[in-house]
Nucleic acid binder design. Structure first.
Lengths: 176, 176
DNA sequence: TAGCGTTTTTAACAATTGTTATCGTTCTAC
DNA sequence: GTAGAACGATAACAATTGTTAAAAACGCTA
């Protein structure tokens, strides 16, 4: 999630509003990210292909800013796809405009750096969760912490996120 | 690993040489880290207690700088222990001296920031490995990438690092 | 080198998850 | 509104891992 603050609002004219349908690919694995997306309505997920299997590893909702920020910053190919889960209203910001913006507003550069740190702390947390907890415990943790996700996201994506098959998640959910 | 560079050498007088035996606790979970360790000889591991079970999650060798850098910087209690695997020769740097040092040498502050980023990228990599790969694949990856670790580190610590029991690792190793 | 604690292997069994397939149900696009 | 795709539950079976225990191998040191 990019922290969208006052700093950004002054530049709202640089953002383009877009309506997209569900399952729209906003960024493809291997491409260099040249856009930042802000979600006004709807949800996105990031996923990558692992030996023919989709692995979902993050969900995004209203108010969040989304990008393959590593790719966006370093110009390296993105390691993952960004795709809509529902019909969305998003605002897009091109890299060119982003550069204009950061040049004029160093505070935004700081925000981006803070954002990268946050992302990486998230990975740390997720990694430790994988070490410590089995799939069932991770499921319960997720249900407790982010119950709203289960209301909006198809279960097989959540299974993928939890590192198990949808069959296994279905079993865990119906374990008395 | 802290990248120990020329910047540090000027301050070698601030480091205290210490010889420690195997299985010495250098930092205890819950304590605030107030020391940075440089390994001249020997090896360390970081681990934490998870419901009574030790979980090892990193190994350190000669030339590496080690600390619970998050705790050291933020003064929050460390989330993990640092313990010697073998008899070691280490150099220790106190937080006080470290602060003197960073005040005089901003480049070292930069190094530390870069180090934190590196650490977090490591978590990202490890997290994705946990998502993508089963224990057997992670073992093979580790054997290919870091064969030297297997020469020096007891197998049950490696098993813990891979997220499996030592029994399971033994089975995987002896799978024809 | 003898003894003791640590580490690794092996075994048997239990629990969990994966795989494949089927079957309703729900969603979506036309 | 209907057809086809997507989704969730379930079943049967296979594969993997966990658990517990015991024995074998190893390494240190007295």
């Amino acid at each position: 999630m990019l922290p969208i603050s006052k700093n950004w609002e002054k530049f709202s004219h640089l953002f383009a509003r877009e309506e997209i349908s569900a399952k729209t690919l906003l960024l493809q694995e291997g491409q260099i990210a040249n856009t930042i997306f802000l979600i006004e309505k709807g949800s996105l997920r990031s996923w990558f292909n692992n030996d023919g299997k989709e692995v979902t590893f993050q969900f995004f909702f209203e108010g969040q800013g989304v990008s393959s920020i590593e790719s966006f910053i370093t110009n390296e190919p993105s390691l993952f796809n960004i795709e809509s889960l529902e019909p969305c209203v998003i605002y897009t910001l091109s890299k060119k405009d982003f550069q204009t913006l950061t040049a004029q507003e160093p505070a935004i550069k700081e925000e981006i750096n803070a954002h990268i740190l946050q992302r990486l702390f998230l990975y740390q947390k997720l990694f430790l969760s994988r070490i410590k907890d089995n799939p069932e415990k991770r499921y319960k943790e997720m249900l407790k912490e982010y119950p709203e996700i289960f209301q909006r996201v198809p279960q097989h994506y959540i299974a993928s996120y939890l590192g198990i098959t949808s069959v296994s998640l279905s079993r865990i959910r119906n374990r008395r």
